[in-house]
């Protein structure tokens, strides 16, 4: 399983791996936001936490269809299914690799982008923490969506349609933590709920993803 993680990470940083694309997309979303809502720093400051969460979520979405599709096309997924590791393990590792190449860089870059959007100083810490806790759920849920659509030729748009409603709870609690943190309000409850959702999806969803992959390979 470590071998699979190492291979996926190696693939993502080599030519054509797409590492950094999500980060660049995130930067573009953040740059475009003031063009759309106006350069008023007070306005930007109130919506900064939400925009950063939404931007991170959309950037995450961008790379979901690569999680499994490449391995499906060249037959590697089929061979992984015959290898002595459970498909649940494959689904977990795939989600982990996606998080390490997408969610983690986004989390680390978010404070810098927060400066661009005039995020209040109190908000930086909780924005980063909420993204660090929330983005693993985005990767795991995204892997599930990728598993459902892996057999389809043009699954990209469908994947977004399926995954985005599943992102609703994570987005609500994640953005709530960031927003309340920025406004200096109590954020313990949404933080606990966000962590709960992440833990539950990490623990349970790989089983559904593995089932979907097996069905698609049949």
């Amino acid at each position: 399983m470590i071998a699979l993680l190492k291979r996926d990470l190696a693939l993502s940083v080599r030519a054509g791996g797409g590492f950094g694309l999500a980060l660049a997309f995130f930067l573009i979303v953040v740059t475009l936001t003031p063009f759309a809502v106006g350069p008023n720093s007070a306005t930007l400051s109130t919506i900064a936490a939400g925009i950063l969460w939404l931007g991170a979520l959309l950037s995450c979405l961008l790379s979901l269809d690569r999680i499994l599709a490449l391995d499906y096309e060249d037959g590697a997924l089929e061979l992984l299914a015959t290898a002595p590791i459970p498909m649940e393990g494959v689904a977990t590792i795939k989600a982990l690799a996606h998080w390490l190449t997408t969610g983690l860089p986004l989390t680390l870059a978010a404070p810098a982008f927060g400066v661009l959007l005039n995020l209040p100083p109190e908000g930086f810490l909780w924005l980063t923490i909420s993204l660090a806790i929330g983005t693993p759920a985005l990767s795991v849920v995204g892997t599930f969506g990728a598993a459902l659509t892996v057999g389809l030729k043009r699954g990209g748009l469908l994947l977004s349609l399926i995954v985005l409603p599943l992102y609703v709870p994570t987005l609500i609690f994640g953005a709530e933590v960031a927003r309340r943190g920025a406004e200096g309000m109590a954020f313990e409850t949404p933080l606990a709920l966000l962590a709960g959702i992440t833990l539950a999806t990490v623990a349970l969803l790989p089983f559904a993803s593995a089932a979907a992959i097996r069905i698609n390979l049949r």
Binding site: R7, G17, D71, E73, D74, G75, A76, L80
Partner: peptide, 11 residues
């Protein structure tokens, strides 16, 4: 061993 080898071009 199927028709597709599952090997990665960049490795």
């Amino acid at each position: 061993a199927s028709h597709a080898d599952g090997n990665k071009g960049t490795l």
